[in-house]
């Protein structure tokens, strides 16, 4: 940053505005492309028996699955549980793969740090949830009522409901949500919840602006070629 005079003021004015919208790598347009001539057998293997967690204890894994479903519930389209989000999280955390929905991880140092750090952050976060429930409600998270669970999650998710002393919980929630969102919207189920059509053949043309007759585009002319 640098500059002087009005130029610098302009920059500060704009930077004060809201944050950039991001996408995670793999949730860009290409995720939705349709296989054509690719065999279905290239699919990552689909397990038949119940999933055995690679990293999390059965207790933590159950919590993980439950919280993921609270973040992305079944509501006309399937939720996180049906999409196998907990399996995705377990697999990625076990393999120390960094996952982020909100920004593309470019720096290798960051990626390694994130991948390694995720194991501790998940365990500490799940334990924090239990400790919080114990001090607030006298029992662990999974034994709380749905209202209590939902109340706690909302305190971590919505700015308006933030409370002091829940900073670590909020940080965990962000992490959990990133993994959940990536884990859900990179599955076929997640994509179908957005209207993904599955296998399709070619698309013949690009439609462009969909309402050229709108008065807003009174002056719209096709660029001459």
């Amino acid at each position: 940053m640098g500059g002087q005079g009005t130029e610098r003021r302009d920059i500060l004015r704009y930077i004060g505005m809201a944050a950039i919208a991001g996408t995670f790598p793999g949730f860009s347009k290409w995720v939705f492309a349709c296989p054509q001539g690719h065999s279905e057998t290239t699919t990552a293997s689909q397990s038949t028996g119940p999933y055995k967690p690679l990293f999390f204890s059965p207790q933590h894994y159950a919590m993980l699955e439950h919280i993921a479903e609270m973040i992305i519930p079944e509501d006309g389209t399937p939720g996180a549980k049906q999409a196998g989000v907990a399996e995705f999280i377990d697999f990625m955390v076990a393999n120390r793969v960094p996952v982020s929905a909100s920004h593309d991880i470019r720096s290798t140092e960051d990626a390694i740090e994130m991948g390694n750090g995720a194991q501790n952050r998940f365990i500490a976060g799940l334990d924090w949830m239990n400790a919080r429930c114990n001090s607030e409600f006298g029992r662990s998270f999974m034994d709380c009522t749905p209202d209590q669970q939902n109340g706690l999650l909302e305190e971590l998710a919505y700015k308006a409901k933030f409370k002091p002393t829940t900073e670590s919980g909020r940080a965990f929630f962000q992490l959990m949500r990133e993994y959940t969102v990536v884990g859900y919207y990179t599955t076929k189920i997640g994509l179908e919840s957005l209207g993904y059509p599955g296998l399709r053949t070619v698309w013949p043309k690009m439609p462009g602006c969909t309402h050229p007759d709108d008065p807003e585009h009174a002056n719209l002319r096709e660029p001459v070629s």
């Binding site: 793999g26 995720v31 492309a33 001539g37 996952v99 991948g115």
Partner: peptide, 29 residues
Amino acid sequence: TEHLPSFKLKYRNHSPEVLRTRPIQKQCY
């Protein structure tokens, strides 16, 4: 692989092998 959805990849396009062997190349989108 332009028509292959990421759910058909082992790491859903998050492969750690990319980071391990292409830490510099990975800086390209």
